[in-house]
Design a protein around this nucleic acid. Sequence first.
RNA 1: GGUGAGGUGGCUGAGCGGUCGAAAGCGGCGCUUUGCUAAAGCGUUGUACCUCAAAAGGGUACCGAGGGUUCGAAUCCCUCCCUCACCGCCA
Length: 425
Amino acid sequence: MLDIRLIREKPEFVRERLGTRGVELVEQVDKILEIDSERRRLETELQRLKADRNKLSKQIGMLRSKKESSAEAEAQVRAIAEEIAGLSQAVAATDETQKNLLLCIPNLPHANATIGADASANPVVRIWGEKPTFSYQPLDHVDLGARLGLFDLERAAKISGSGFVCFTNLGARLQRALIQFLLDLHTIQHGYVEVWPPHLVRRECMVGTGQLPKFEEDAYGLEQGQTFLIPTAEVPLTNLHREETLSYKELPKYFVAHTPCFRREAGSAGRDTRGIIRIHQFDKVELVKIATPEASYEELEKLTADAEKVLQMLGLHYRVIELCTGDLGFSMAKTYDLEVWAPGQDRYLEVSSCSNAEDFQARRMGLKFKDADGKNRFCHTLNGSGTALARLYVALVETYQQSDGSVSIPQPLRDYVRVKEIRSP
RNA sequence: GGUGAGGUGGCUGAGCGGUCGAAAGCGGCGCUUUGCUAAAGCGUUGUACCUCAAAAGGGUACCGAGGGUUCGAAUCCCUCCCUCACCGCCA
């Protein structure tokens, strides 16, 4: 959520920044400003009436204690009370309207973000490693998985519908090994605190991180839309300290969690239908940081490096791209995507998105900290996948396939998988 | 799911429907005293919002949340949420 005072005081700046995401947002600013001044006008009037009422009520108390008549004052207050009732409704309604509008306005892109309309304008920041070469046509993970019995898409579809996967045998163990490897890396080497959060969260949490109210059709909701299956561990982790005021001394906080992620993929029907690249339930190891505004961009670089370390250790070729203003997620001011090379797909797959939301999420969830001067300020929140499992899985088996149809296991995973390679049974 | 108890400021903990944003204690901050530490004394100490060009000042709201009764609610009534205890059920 943007600071209404910023919009009020620097509307031109806000229009300009929002405009880099898309022009249709600019008019939202005018709408907000209009409602804001109306809201304040009504609120001031309401408060004046309440002050009168409070004054008179006190007088009544004093008159009564002196056993004098208070009938006249009581009649006055009764009249004021009616006005108050009417005005309060108007104030509440205007307030609600303003809040809903504000909740649907995306974050301002960072000042030096690359300006562009869509993903085609995203600059490549760096490239690590090289595309592996094969003396034969590399298979994709679906064929490899079928040969090696790693997962069963048909039966997953039978029990849950299309867009689900059922890992089996060593395929399931490989998934478990990856999770273990990732959690160990981020806790032991990178200093994140391991968390195993609930996978069902209240509506407020989804509003807090920005999935709601605007993107409800993407989420799986339960209990009359009051609780939701998490689309990412970013939601429970970032909301851990919602409505709290932390001390600057305890920042930054680092959290890592492995959870399943549930997504309807409402807007992506028909895309990436083959295999496990886009499925309704996938596992992910997520990194979340709560930081001071002063440190957040440095923390973003470190967080991105922590995620990259995964791909480096597994020896997977990848590139880092920066999202341009038109491609930036709703809540984010700056984002780096990590894209890993998948030889069987002959393309890069997004396995991590590392972002700084600045105070956008913190303002929505009331997450503050007391700074060294004792002032309360909003924290900055960051998150990044470290990494998504299903696509990492795809890149891994496609990269490490061998000419005989087996898949070798890279060194860092061997202690977890307990085999050097996976052969057909 | 049932029964009972309870949710008050940073913490502990009072609070007959009227001057209660809330006693008292602890903690925090400041000053004084003091050779240092300690102790004591005095003062101060919540958040959000509105108003004001700004500061000062003024105002509104907040005692788990939301409604209601009343001229007036921390205090009375209703609903919900959460915590604790016990019972039932259960992996």
